[in-house]
Design a binder for these strands. Structure first.
Lengths: 366, 366
DNA sequence: GCTTACCCGGTAACCGCTTACTAAGTAAGC
DNA sequence: GCTTACTTAGTAAGCGGTTACCGGGTAAGC
């Protein structure tokens, strides 16, 4: 053994074949369990593989199989400068990503993660680079314009999260409509609050738009008054929520009885801002969120919110993409159910803890 | 145009060349900025690329270039069942991974993330699968035995985190020694605590071993008494820390004046357990951590700990791996400096907040 | 003993890209 | 006008796997 040794060339299937005294086809067959190699052949191959610590090259395999077994996930990193120190928790996106990862693993896929800076440009270039390295893409909210997604989806299977389905791409989201409807009913009917405001997230997020729309319709239907003004626009972040409240208060505006936030992070910022001004939640102002991020139940008071099956959202996105990669069609618009989580920030009393459900279970595959 | 159309074959470089009326070599050259194509050639290629939404196949590229521009990262997911609900924060590993990702992006690399269940077997199979899809690997603590790492590193560049360098693999860690030394000095010399205990992490973690070793040596050197017993063994988790304290208390054991935890998560669990029993921190028992995870400063009282440049740890791991992939040698044992973060859990008074440093900056590359 | 069937394993084509080598065309030099 | 030098673009050889196809050997059937 051993002519050119110090070149640190990783062994190829040819080296294995040579060492085992068989052909590369046999090596491949043994490694992939195809055909029916003789016991001895199998043994010799396996031994050679072990001796050389051979690991088949994924690129070559992918090229030959037309399958990389990789999905790309693209999302926005939170603000470059972590803004303030309050929001270093495992948030919405992280939980989704974990869901994707776990689901992918079950299928033998791996996940290529690529985050994009909040203000970074050249997003579509980066997305294209990922696309080339993966069999399909999962795009989080607001990564690309609708047109951009449509174009991309021409050449690669694409699943969006909390976006909108297009002619060529699939979208996975939760049932914003029923969630918001149940929430408003609880606030207006059960608690009797007559004045509400919706503190929005990113204006161009479909989730935000749906929530805002239903908020308005349902509040009116229930006969509540809506505080609508240019001021009530956040950006899904805690700082955004805090900023809105602070400036409202600075202007001497009177707050509504209940503030319905577009997501939990916003609610978190709102609660901080209110606490700073000495305004009691929920006694003076009720606050609600949306998502049910893990920290929501640890706030003071615990946050009433709408639970999305966050991890399942990710898992579902993967499953949908996976079957798409395998050529099957399926629905374009996948909607997962939500559930109203009544805790204390809405004004409900402390609940003797018949603890919620166990940790979220993941969807059974179709 | 267009015979077989409905097969959704992604366009290849041949299609682009055909459409532009040039050879594939020209397409490649235009796309990669090699050679000096005539302006017209360039234009025609670019147009064809646009019209077809062509994205070059990463696998083919990788095969030809011998470079995938992908690094694999393997780590353990926290307990399958999130144990209790307390620790859903952005923890050590997550921050490191973010550091890796950001650094990779600067070099045009992407990151293949693969988590392994806490009790999952077949780890080395999975690691091998990742290895085949990447140019190099970053392994978090305790993924593989030393022998396993050595074997793997024969065929793929490997960087470990918080492990030990081997003949063929590089390790990146922080300066446990000085951190622990400074911490003990502070507790014993500045506060005058005479009895200490070290609540360990995983027994086979090199970080844990180093911290334990220095704890002991330094405590003795300072003349403090050590509570050593089989009981003081945690596992880096909050639940582990809480369990140790609870059982100690149940047995009616008397606690030391200060508990030095192997990491922040453990300290978190310890503080919870102490609070539950009504034991005041730091007045009755002081508690310290190690790592300076983001939540550390939000505990009550804020946790005195040793700050590791966590994100930089990840970034450095990537940079080291990157230069290794490019063939350069370099040191095997990379050590990053730490810094003692004195807050209140050690018994120091509330500090008028000349807030620490701004967000961690990332190392300039060598 | 010779044909037929079957089982294994080898040869070679192909996956989509990069690039060394080469050819053709054009400009410059005598 | 013909040679020389330079620019641009095409041809073809890999990169490291998978697998269709084929051929040799052995067992079974007559």
């Amino acid at each position: 053994m051993g002519e050119a040794k110090r070149t640190r060339v990783t062994p190829t299937i040819y080296d294995v074949a040579g060492r085992a005294g068989v052909s590369i086809a046999s090596v491949s067959r043994v490694l992939n369990g195809q055909g029916s190699p003789r016991a001895e052949t199998r043994m010799r191959v396996l031994r050679a593989v072990r001796e050389l610590s051979f690991v088949p090259d994924g690129a070559a395999r992918a090229l030959s199989n037309q399958l990389k077994e990789v999905v790309g996930v693209v999302f926005r990193r939170g603000s470059e400068v972590p803004f303030e120190d309050e929001e270093e928790s495992l948030l919405f996106i992280d939980v989704i990503n974990r869901g994707i990862e776990v689901a992918a693993q079950r299928r033998g896929f791996d996940v290529l993660m690529s985050s994009v800076g909040i203000r970074e440009d050249g997003v579509s270039t980066r997305v294209a680079a990922i696309a080339g390295k993966a069999d399909g893409l999962i795009l989080h909210d607001r990564m690309l314009s609708a047109a951009g997604i449509a174009r991309l989806a021409e050449s690669v299977p694409v699943v969006t999260l909390a976006g909108r389905p297009s002619r060529v791409s699939i979208n996975v989201r939760c049932d914003n409509e029923s969630g918001m409807r149940a929430l408003i009913r609880h606030l207006v009917t059960d608690h009797g609050y007559r004045s509400l405001a919706f503190l929005s997230g990113h204006p161009d997020s479909p989730d935000n738009q749906a929530r805002a729309r239903v908020f308005e319709a349902q509040a009116i239907a229930c006969g509540a008054e809506i505080h609508a003004a240019a001021a009530w626009h956040g950006d899904y972040s805690a700082s955004g929520g805090a900023r809105v409240i602070a400036s409202l208060l600075d202007e001497g505006r009177i707050l509504p009885r209940a503030i319905v936030c577009a997501n939990d992070q916003t609610a978190l910022g709102v609660m901080h801002a209110l606490a700073r001004r000495g305004i009691a939640v929920p006694n003076e102002v009720a606050v609600t969120g949306f998502d049910d991020v893990p920290v929501a139940r640890h706030l003071h008071p615990p946050l009433t919110t709408v639970r999305q099956p966050i991890q399942e959202l990710g898992a579902t996105a993967f499953e949908v993409l996976h079957s798409r990669i395998n050529g099957s069609a399926g629905r374009r618009d996948v909607v997962l159910p939500v559930r109203l989580m009544i805790r204390e920030s809405c004004g409900c009393a402390h609940q003797p803890s018949p603890l919620p459900a166990p940790a979220a279970t993941v969807a059974d595959e179709a």
